[in-house]
Design a binder for these strands. Structure first.
Lengths: 122, 122
DNA sequence: AAACTGTATTACTCCGGATAATACAGTTGT
DNA sequence: ACAACTGTATTATCCGGAGTAATACAGTTT
């Protein structure tokens, strides 16, 4: 069972989505692996089941997981899950870059930050 | 007087902050220029004065503008204003990049996005 | 003195997030 | 077959933040 730090300002179901997305992309949660039940996750997180279900529903909508009634929720098969989460993350990154560029951040500055994070020039 | 599109999901005062930040960084709003009065801006935007004041207060807190009671609010002097907004934007960008990297986005993908936004390789 | 400025305070409404208590239908394990 | 579990749906309620509103104060400008 995974753990989630509920600390940020974002809504709880958003935080759950983000964390599960991360776990999938990193490979801790593998394709077709069964996720903890809605009620179980809720209990483990000290959160309302409905909140977790909302997160699961959003994840399914984005293609990260699939849920079958009366059985459970599973990580999307093959590479689709990790692919979906990276695509999503890439879109978020693009939005951040666009906004940064719009507010005057230069390409050079962006590159510097990139070097700090991904390591200098592959 | 500037105009602001109130469309996003973000709170109004946040949108006002973002737009003024952008205008400062781009140079439309120059150092020591007097900003429209709180009440005037509110009227122009069809928004409550308190909402605008909240935005101005946040901008002052971040060093983008300075307000003197009974006189007005002004863009921060010298390069400090534009510098402050870019620094802020850069931090936001760093956070986005860290999160992207954390969720599995490769440097190559990030570079591709960068090329689309800032133009290919300066 | 009048009209403007930023600032502060208080109260109210509205909405989304979160909780809560269920209920239903289908699967699994015994 | 039965109990226990699964995802899903519905409805109601509570709470906090966002936004509105109506003021008031003190200082500046004209």
């Amino acid at each position: 069972m995974f753990k989630i730090e509920l600390d940020g300002t974002a809504s709880i179901h958003d935080q759950i989505c983000s964390e599960i997305s991360r776990l999938i992309s990193v490979g801790i949660l593998v394709p077709d692996e069964k996720l903890p039940a809605v009620r179980e996750t809720a209990k483990a997180l000290g959160v309302n089941p409905n909140t977790v279900q909302k997160a699961y529903a959003a994840l399914e909508k984005n293609g990260l997981i699939y849920s079958v009634p009366a059985k459970g929720s599973y990580v999307a098969p093959g590479g689709t899950a990790a692919e979906a989460v990276r695509k999503e993350a890439a879109e978020t990154l693009r939005a951040a870059m666009e906004k940064a560029a719009q507010t005057g951040v230069s390409r050079g500055t962006a590159e510097e930050i990139m070097n700090e994070i991904w390591g200098k020039k592959g």
